[in-house]
Amino acid sequence: MREVFPNNKSKRVMAQRLNIEFTYSFFYHQKADWVSIHEKICQLLIPIRTSFPFFNSEKERKHGMEQLLHRQKHLVDFTHKVAQKFVFEGKHEEAIPAALHSLRFSIDTCGPDSVELVPAYLILAEASTGLGRLTQAEEYLSQAQWIVLKTSDCSNGIQSKLHRNLGLLYAAKGNFEESLYHLATDIYFASCAFGTHDISTSGGYFHMANVFFRQNKMDIADSLYTEVTDIWHAHFSRLIQVQSQTLTTLSCMLFIHLKCFILNIDEAQQAEASQVLNAILDIREQAPKQQPAKTANVVHALAMLHYLIFDFPKAHELGMKAFLITKQLPNQDASEAIHHLLKYIKSKLFYTK
């Protein structure tokens, strides 16, 4: 891995910068902090900030420490997911307090040099890039890269996310050649970790397509947008098939009551899928040369997304839109698949009225 940002800062300087960031977030953005994350974790913080009781035995003390560590790790994971969701939704200002909380809990749990800090640094970098604070984004990425470089067994997934963020930063700077290098590296590591056609890999294709789009290399961009759509479309199709098989013995009424227990896609994935697919749909619909089959595929994928998150009215609206587009095509295979989805949706709409 080439070292993009030379980093000679000491741990003391790093700690000082973190303290400045926390102070800035908590005292100048208290309202944003409360809205974005603090309200959600307020009750979870109570047992962590409460002083330990007197333990009668070493066994009780050990159990108490294990419980504390478990709660801290839960907070790391929860705040990270909230921050990631905000980033996918384009709410970069709201993402920063949540990501700072995640970073602080990670430091408390794992120490200041652990690879477990990298995901929080990367979200902070992506949010800063989204806000146009490129110098700040570089500093966060410098910290993340320094940890990755000194971690001999750093996972492919972490390295993928690091290079994706470097690609986004260079794209924001207008350095498209360097951006494409890092996005290609992101796709390589993501493919090693998850496979070439996994939704975790699709983000690299999407951001690379955006770079080619900005360079007016429309044929390459179109191919990559198609790949991203196909990956999400196949993913949602599998989830619907699994869900359908799981629920064959349940009535639709029971299905509605149990929906909170059988969601197949978390909020961060929902936000990512919605952001990516709606962006591609806008590009498809505004293109000088229309491609109805590809447009229908995106709309069908969005209809499946809304079906999976139990937004049946929106799923029906999008399903009908995709169905009408495919009825004009010579190949009716897609039309038949959409027709089956509409039948599923209508059966659920009946029970949600």
Results as ranks from 00 to 15, higher is better:
1 M>R: 06
5 F>D: 03
12 R>S: 10
12 R>P: 00
19 N>S: 14
21 E>T: 08
25 S>H: 05
36 S>K: 11
36 S>C: 06
37 I>R: 05
38 H>K: 13
39 E>N: 14
47 P>N: 06
49 R>D: 12
51 S>T: 05
53 P>H: 01
56 N>Q: 12
58 E>C: 07
64 G>P: 00
64 G>R: 11
70 H>C: 04
82 V>T: 12
84 Q>D: 15
90 G>Q: 09
118 V>R: 09
122 L>R: 02
124 L>V: 06
127 A>T: 07
129 T>I: 15
132 G>H: 08
145 Q>E: 15
149 L>E: 11
159 Q>A: 03
162 L>W: 02
167 G>E: 00
174 G>L: 04
183 L>M: 12
193 A>N: 09
197 H>E: 15
199 I>M: 05
199 I>S: 02
201 T>N: 01
202 S>N: 01
203 G>V: 07
206 F>I: 00
209 A>G: 07
211 V>T: 09
213 F>S: 09
222 D>G: 14
225 Y>I: 02
225 Y>H: 06
232 W>N: 05
232 W>V: 04
243 Q>D: 13
253 M>E: 13
253 M>S: 13
255 F>A: 05
256 I>R: 13
262 I>Q: 10
266 D>H: 10
287 A>R: 14
287 A>L: 02
289 K>M: 05
292 P>F: 08
295 T>Y: 01
299 V>I: 15
299 V>Q: 04
300 H>P: 02
305 L>R: 11
322 A>G: 08
327 K>F: 00
328 Q>T: 14
330 P>V: 11
332 Q>M: 11
340 H>I: 04
345 I>W: 01
345 I>F: 01
